[in-house]
Amino acid sequence: MNDMPEARVSDSASWFLSTARERIAGLLDHGSFMEFLPPTERVQSPHLALFDLPVAFDDGVIVGRGRLAGRDVLIAAQEGQFMGGTFAEVSGAKLLGLIRAARDNDKLPRAILLLLDSGGVRLQEANAGELAVAEVMRAIMEARMAGVAVIALVGGRAGAFGGAGLTAATCSRIAISEQGRTGVSGPEVIETNKGVEEFDSKDKALVWSVTGGRNRRLIGGADAYAEDTVSGFREAASSLIDRAPTFDLATLQAEQQRLSARVERFANCSTAAEMWRVLGITAPQSIRDMNDAAFVKIVADVKEASHDGR
């Protein structure tokens, strides 16, 4: 099938700083990864040349299968450094093919790991990219209905915004690190469109508190908190696969209730710290500076953080 060797990636390597290939190599059991349509096949964008932009031999998405701590999984990873990890005609179709394969064949692994690292849709291929997101979201839901656990891992440089933010929230479960960021419109986009009073994208602490992994985990926008390492994400992913909610009416009714309750509880909050206080955290200012272990302890006491409404 392929012969893409894996360099050894240490367990303590930073997820944020690693490339998509390094993340896969480090996450999966050594030597277990088999790539579909590897770079030697040159499955790349035919559209970037129009814009005088370089292509990548994998169009920034790697798909394949392997083993996660001994368990067979399908896996896909976006390369956030290439075109912001964006959904485009080819990169999107690679994700789509993988998820549909799991949906249609119960002989394939019943878990898919999506290593999202994406600013959303690739504007140079905007229509194809947007539609690819819609197709991927639909395929994820259909796969879930067929009994596949689809786990999103968010901790890369590009985060998971726009269509990638929606894709993450369509999955059975989401793991996120402190550096992981997710949402729909990025802070820069909001500032550009609505002004700096609405969202000051240069205010790092503000951006962190609104879109960052700790806020998402506390309010239940992510289901596991991972240390920013390869082994951190391996543990988080492994723990989530067996806790995937079924995709049915009861689950979506629970999600409706959960999201409605969130609006009501935080209606008067204008900052994330105010939300955290409402959640019962007595010293919300300390969230930013505490270490991962201390944060995980805090999360364990927050009722809203863990749920099956997804």
């Binding site: 979201m137 929230a169 729909v184 802070p187 009416l249």
Partner: peptide, 30 residues
């Protein structure tokens, strides 16, 4: 398009938008 507001993003607008898409897909399925 989606509402561009810090409050909506702070509450996780991506979950809300995806939720609607999920409800519609489940409706089709049912």
């Amino acid at each position: 398009g989606q509402r561009m507001a810090r409050h909506d993003e702070m509450l996780g607008l991506n979950e809300y938008l995806a939720h609607l898409a999920k409800c519609l897909r489940l409706a089709s399925h049912e």
